[in-house]
Computed example of a mutant assay.
Amino acid sequence: MTAIVQVEGLKKSFGKFVALKDVNFSVNPGEVVGFIGPNGAGKSTTIRTILGIIKKDAGKVTVFGKDAWQESIEIHQQLSYVPGDVALWGNLTGGEIIDLFMKLHGQGDLVKRDQLIKKFELDPRKKAKSYSKGNRQKVGLIAALSVESELYILDEPTSGLDPLMESVFQEEVEKLKHAGKAILLSSHILSEVERLADKVVIIRDGKVVETGTLDEMRHLTRSTVTVSTKDQVASLVEVQGVHDFQQKGQQATFSIDNKHLNGLLAALGQLEVVKFEVVPPTLEDLFIRHYEN
């Protein structure tokens, strides 16, 4: 499969400040890549380099096989982009701005536009200067989703939206994925990334520190276990891979390295189990693992 976006050894400095040290990842057709990291980690700088807004210092950045800086005009004909804080022309209505963006792109679908306006509950007749942050984001999302693109770059796209509108956005991203579109999603809402992303890229201090599917990354962390028995549950503290063991009566709660789950099951086979729950690690767990220090 040929990658839509390919980033290899990307480096970028602003004066003495090194913003990107060594960034590597790809986005394939029909794939949602979650791009996460705290403020200042290099997410927006990476995205702006992919968009051809910033020129890289070193490395390789291609989109549709074309150089992101030298061939940005051709690239933009096939992509849609929504920033985290959409700036609009205050004296134009939301509907006029959506239509303008669609005309600039050239691949607009008026029927889909009207459907999205209804779904996102936007009043397109109001002047943009009267819109809240959430409504400004809706304008950007509707404009981006109403055109036919092969790549969607979404940088904190649901910033300012309420949970109901976030759900509408997630449904639309699922449709794009099933249509074979490539999606790069940068979001601070980890549950959103966890629901949508096929692959997660974690960036820290300008360098990618983890990349892979959620299932692959979950092998690197621990599950949380709650177990109640009629026997001495305290014996489970001796099982290899058990951490943070806490007991209350005949119930114990602890975390365990996933590679040692078979050993835990063998130990439980020797006890009379009343209750047994295993909660897999969340994306928050993986994220905190990289930033807790």
Score class of each variant (00 low, 15 high):
3 A>E: 09
7 V>K: 05
17 F>D: 10
17 F>L: 14
18 V>A: 13
20 L>G: 11
20 L>I: 12
21 K>Y: 08
27 V>P: 04
28 N>Y: 14
42 G>M: 07
50 I>N: 01
50 I>Q: 03
51 L>M: 15
52 G>E: 11
54 I>V: 09
55 K>D: 09
59 G>H: 09
61 V>K: 06
63 V>P: 06
68 A>K: 04
68 A>C: 10
70 Q>W: 09
71 E>W: 13
71 E>K: 15
73 I>P: 00
74 E>T: 09
79 L>G: 01
80 S>E: 13
86 V>E: 04
87 A>W: 06
90 G>Y: 02
94 G>K: 03
94 G>V: 03
100 L>T: 13
101 F>K: 00
113 R>C: 08
118 K>A: 15
140 G>D: 10
140 G>K: 02
142 I>F: 08
142 I>N: 07
146 S>C: 10
149 S>M: 06
154 L>T: 04
159 S>K: 01
165 M>Q: 10
167 S>P: 00
175 K>T: 14
184 L>P: 04
190 L>K: 00
195 R>I: 11
196 L>C: 11
196 L>M: 13
199 K>P: 02
207 K>Q: 13
220 L>C: 07
220 L>G: 12
221 T>A: 04
221 T>L: 01
225 V>A: 04
228 S>T: 15
228 S>H: 03
232 Q>D: 15
233 V>K: 01
235 S>R: 12
236 L>H: 06
242 V>C: 08
246 Q>F: 14
258 N>S: 10
264 L>I: 14
265 L>V: 12
267 A>G: 07
268 L>N: 12
268 L>R: 03
275 K>Y: 15
275 K>I: 10
283 L>H: 02
285 D>C: 08
289 R>G: 15
292 E>V: 15
